[in-house]
Simulated scan of single mutants.
Amino acid sequence: MKKLLVILIALGGTALMNGQTIESGSHSTAGYIKSDGTIENSSHSTKGYIKSNGTIENSSHSTIGYIKSDGTIENGSHSTVGYVKSNGTVENSSHSTIGYIKDDGTVENSSHSTIGYARGVKKEWAAVAFFFFKF
């Protein structure tokens, strides 16, 4: 559930606000991600931000990570915590596969079990929310 909140936070926003809903594996709303990168929980409280330059911030605007143009995900100290491949494979810092973000927005764990949905959300943003940061 914490991973779901992270995704929701990373993806914050409602469809009415040009954002997408983040859902759990059972399709319950976990949060939202707005088109501007604002991450909200299911009650629409802001939990974080993903800036256009790839900077990831918490709700207090403190930098907690970075998304690089090549899909590398870093923590606030610029240490690599994982990777998002162009095909949606999500890897940890040791390049072990920890999950998948499908083209249709389905989020799977390393065993291909569905853990959530992030339709219309950038794969990197979905990975940040589901696998790398707790919002």
Score class of each variant (00 low, 15 high):
I115Y: 08
M17F: 14
Y100H: 14
A30K: 06
T97K: 12
T106G: 07
K47T: 13
S96L: 13
A118E: 01
S24H: 11
I67S: 03
G12H: 01
Y49M: 05
S43A: 13
V84L: 02
G37C: 12
T29L: 03
K34A: 15
G31Y: 11
Y83L: 11
W125E: 14
M1I: 08
H44E: 14
N18M: 03
E57P: 06
G12V: 03
Y100D: 02
H112C: 06
S59F: 08
A15R: 10
S28W: 07
F130N: 11
G31L: 10
S52G: 06
I22R: 04
F132E: 00
T29E: 02
V90Y: 02
A127L: 06
H78M: 07
S96W: 10
E74Q: 11
S111Y: 00
I115D: 09
A118P: 04
T80Y: 12
T63A: 12
N109V: 02
N58S: 14
Y66Q: 04
H44K: 15
G25P: 03
G82Y: 00
F133T: 07
N53E: 12
A126V: 05
A30S: 08
G88T: 04
S28F: 10
R119I: 01
M17G: 14
H44V: 10
I22T: 12
F132L: 08
I73F: 15
G116N: 15
N58H: 07
K134A: 14
S35Q: 01
G82L: 02
S79W: 13
S52R: 08
S35V: 00
K122I: 00
L16E: 11
D70H: 10
N92G: 09
V81T: 14
S52C: 04
E23D: 09
T14F: 00
E74N: 06
S69A: 08
D103E: 13
N41P: 15
K2S: 07
Y49V: 04
T114H: 01
H78K: 13
S77F: 10
F132T: 00
T55G: 02
S110F: 01
V128L: 06
S26M: 13
N18C: 04
M17D: 15
F131R: 06
G37K: 14
G116T: 15
L16C: 07
G25Q: 03
T21P: 15
S42F: 11
Y49E: 07
Q20L: 06
N53K: 07
M1P: 09
S93Q: 04
I73C: 14
G99W: 05
I50L: 15
T55H: 00
V90P: 01
G31A: 11
S43Q: 12
S69D: 13
S111M: 00
G48T: 05
G88R: 06
T38Y: 03
T55C: 00
